[in-house]
């Protein structure tokens, strides 16, 4: 098997995650889809690391994880406060961007 297949898998997961972000209304599920996209990227980075024979890719993936952890903390906090004020976790309910 050619290790390039890992990259195809990563692309597929990324696309599924992105589509999920667009389709789902529940902010928590949207957020999970974002995590899925991040993980797909990590997979690609790890595959690249193997391809190039050095550890830089893994380092980047490691940083991605750290940032994702921070993001999850803040994002979930936002969802909780949003739910508190609007009694809804739907992203469509927060449609104040419309004039």
């Amino acid at each position: 098997m050619n290790p390039v297949n890992y990259l195809y898998l990563a692309a597929l997961l990324f696309t599924i995650g992105a589509t999920g972000v667009l389709i789902r209304r529940n902010a928590i599920v949207v957020f999970m889809c974002v995590e899925l996209m991040l993980n797909a990227c990590n997979l690609a980075l790890v595959a690249f690391s193997r391809m190039h024979g050095n550890l830089d890719g893994q380092i980047i993936a490691f940083f991605t994880m750290v940032v994702a952890a921070a993001e999850v903390v803040v994002g979930l906090a936002i969802i909780v406060s949003l739910f508190r004020s609007r009694h809804s976790a739907s992203v469509d309910d927060a449609s104040l961007m419309k004039l």
Binding site: L9, L12, L13, I16, G17, T19, G20, I23, R24, V29, M32, C33, L36
Partner: peptide
């Protein structure tokens, strides 16, 4: 892939 699709 199935897991991802189910997530969505």
């Amino acid at each position: 892939v199935i897991g991802a699709l189910c997530t969505v």
